[in-house]
Amino acid sequence: MITAALVFGPSKLTITSKLGAVYGYSLLWVVIVAILFMAVFTGMSTRIGVATHQSLLASVRQKWGKPASVLMGIGVFLVTTSFQAGNSIGVGIAVGELYHTSPVPWILFFNAFGISLLFFRSFYSVLERTMILLIFVKLFSFVTTFFWAEPDAGKIVSGFTTPTIPEGSQGLIIAFIASCFSIVGALYQSYLIQERIRINPALREAKNDSTTGIILLGGMCSIVIICAAAILNPKGIAVNSATDMAKALEPIFGNNASTLFLVGLFGAAFSSLIGNASVGGTLLGDALGLGSNFSSRSVRYLVALVMIIGASIAIRFGKLPLELIVFAQSVTIFIVPFIGTALYMVGNDREIMGDKVNSPLVKVVAGLGLLVIFSLAIINCKELFLNNP
């Protein structure tokens, strides 16, 4: 649930809205592809967390040495910190639009609130309950919008079962797969499951299934694409941000629909605000030997640091600066294939995994997922360094 909540942020809401608004129902099949690979890698990460009594970065250290684990930890911290401003802006805009005020006070308030959650003794339990609540806020908002939209059932089925690539859609397809098939989110799953086991050791012997949360992630992506396809596509309304989607609903369904969608946007932004910061702080703490769980005071301070940096950038610039986006993309290009490969190799290591080692089927599907990751990295590298001199 936490993984699904932190992956489905404002950028995902924007991309999915745009997919439906521009290309209608025709790209729904992309959700299945992205969710399949995400489910496989998240499941692998879950088994790694259950099979070992050490963190994933500790297993990386065991296999390839300290420099590899430090590189992963610092890389993830840089990526999450770079994108944290977008989550702060999303929270500020969502609530600011609801109350017709400046986003700045809301950015300050909700970051302060997020940091205050860190000082609860059982932060993981608070995080889990908050994320589950926000998941249901998002689901309620988007499912209600779905029924208002009255989509075409036949076109929905066709969109899922008949893969097509409309002209000019390649960029959005790549952006969606890269954001939905989140290797950083999958990596973090191993830390989350170990946090649960630390609180309740009996869970190590229980069935730990990450599929439900990932299916919910796919469901939310599909619903937003369908809503945009049903409402915006016939009218030729394109969207460049999630708030554009909310504004487009207003003349069709009135203030209630716009408000409802903004509530969903808030849920997406605030869940990513906390979740994204938790990923960056935990991984950097582990890489530097300061701890790998929320009981470590140093990890909590690092999580707070990610929030403070993101909020500062959001207030200073009011948007994600282009230079920061380029920097984040540059780091992502190099770190994500490395993380995916490390996950795959650890999951295949019988000495580390025991009876939870990857099955032959998982090896094949995850291997295809790695090909997708490396292909996306090559495409992004070409776009970033060759097409933008």
Rank of each mutant, 00 (worst) to 15 (best):
I309L: 09
F294M: 03
V326L: 15
A314W: 03
F317S: 14
A311T: 00
G281D: 05
K319T: 12
L322A: 15
L284Q: 03
L288N: 07
I309K: 02
L284F: 11
R316M: 13
A314Q: 00
G289H: 02
A304P: 01
V306L: 08
L302K: 06
V299W: 04
N293I: 06
F327V: 09
T332F: 09
F294D: 00
G285W: 02
K319H: 13
G318Q: 09
S296I: 08
P321A: 07
L302M: 12
A287E: 02
F317R: 07
G291K: 06
R300K: 12
T332D: 12
A311P: 00
F294V: 01
T332S: 14
G285K: 03
T332H: 06
A287M: 05
S298N: 14
A304M: 05
I313K: 07
G310V: 06
V331I: 15
L290K: 14
S330E: 14
S292W: 09
F317D: 14
L288T: 08
Q329A: 13
A304S: 10
T332I: 05
S330L: 10
L320Q: 07
I325Y: 13
M307H: 06
I313W: 11
L320M: 15
S296P: 09
G310D: 03
V299Y: 03
I315C: 07
L290C: 09
A328I: 05
G289T: 01
K319G: 10
S292Q: 08
T332N: 14
I308C: 02
M307L: 15
I308K: 00
D286M: 09
M307Q: 06
Y301D: 08
Y301S: 11
G318E: 08
G281A: 09
R316I: 12
V326S: 14
I313M: 12
S312G: 11
S295F: 11
I313L: 10
Q329N: 14
V303Q: 08
Y301L: 15
S298K: 15
F317Y: 15
I309T: 04
L290Y: 11
K319A: 13
G310I: 08
G310F: 04
G310M: 04
A311K: 02
A328T: 13
G310E: 02
I313P: 06
R300L: 06
N293T: 12
Q329P: 06
A328W: 01
G310S: 02
T282K: 08
R300W: 04
V331F: 11
T332P: 02
L288Y: 06
V303W: 07
G289I: 03
I309Q: 00
I308S: 00
L305K: 05
A304H: 08
K319V: 08
G310N: 01
L302D: 00
L320W: 05
K319M: 11
I309E: 01
R316C: 10
E323L: 10
V326N: 15
G285I: 08
I313D: 07
R300V: 01
M307P: 01
A328F: 02
A287L: 02
S298T: 01
I313Q: 05
L324N: 05
S292N: 13
K319D: 13
S298C: 09
I309P: 01
I309H: 01
L288M: 11
S295R: 13
I315K: 05
L283I: 11
S298W: 13
E323K: 14
L283Q: 11
R300N: 06
P321Q: 11
G285P: 01
R297L: 15
A311F: 06
